[in-house]
């Protein structure tokens, strides 16, 4: 059996961290795009779409992410479709992220004062013009802190994908623990790396929020 030094462990963990980072970025970007689509379906004028999106959000917020990962991984397998862990992980996390972001952003759009809708309507603007020039610019500003804040949840959410066999940071931790029998050292390092990823994000969210409260203008 090979002897692992602390440096070896760290090198392996950092290598695996890049997959955590990539999966986080993919989930956040993909989830953001899908979330935007969901948002417009949810707040749009088509009658049928809002309840559909509402149900979607309820389902993804009302079930554990782990179950969603299992369903994406094993569920599609039942239909004879062979899903590699990375694909199942990315799909499940994108769908999950989209549900949360759509809901966060809907709150931000609804937080824009009703008078803004009325004033812009009374000036003859159409729904899309109101959205584009009056409502969304104001909603966007409110949305930034909670959106950055939620990115922390996405990073931590990627840890669950280790269970379906995607080799990101947590999975690497498990593998290394089995090889070294030093769970405390290995998972301690794993936790430290997660913290190093998440702490700047949550700090940024807090900073943005404070900045917004200090001068809630422009």
């Amino acid at each position: 059996m090979t002897q692992f030094t602390l440096i070896d462990i760290l090198r392996n963990l950092i290598f695996a961290t890049q997959w955590t980072v990539i999966l986080s970025l993919v989930s956040f970007a993909g989830g953001g795009l899908l979330g935007l689509v969901l948002l417009f379906m949810r707040i749009g004028k088509a009658r049928l779409l809002p309840p559909v999106v509402k149900l979607y959000v309820e389902i993804f917020q009302g079930t554990p992410l782990l179950m969603q990962l299992f369903l994406a991984f094993f569920g599609l397998g039942l239909f004879g479709i062979d899903v590699p862990p990375w694909l199942a992980a990315a799909v499940a996390l994108i769908l999950w992220t989209a549900a949360f972001l759509a809901e966060i952003w809907r709150g931000c759009v609804e937080a824009v004062a009703k008078g803004q809708w009325e004033a812009s309507a009374s000036l003859g603007m159409s729904y899309l013009e109101q959205m584009r020039h009056v409502i969304l610019p104001q909603a966007l500003k409110v949305a930034i802190p909670p959106t950055v804040g939620f990115s922390v949840q996405v990073v931590k959410g990627t840890a669950l994908t280790s269970i379906i066999g995607f080799t990101e940071l947590s999975k690497a931790g498990t593998v290394l623990t089995n090889a070294t029998f030093q769970p405390f050292t290995v998972y301690g390092l794993v936790a430290l790396i997660y913290f190093a990823l998440c702490f700047p994000l949550s700090q940024a969210a807090r900073h943005l929020e404070r900045k917004m409260n200090a001068a809630h203008r422009h």
Binding site: A113, G115, Q116, E118, A119, S120, V134, P137, Q138, K141, R217, H218
Partner: peptide, 10 residues
Amino acid sequence: IFQQFNLFPH
């Protein structure tokens, strides 16, 4: 014209 002005704050 509205009671609460409703100017666009941004």
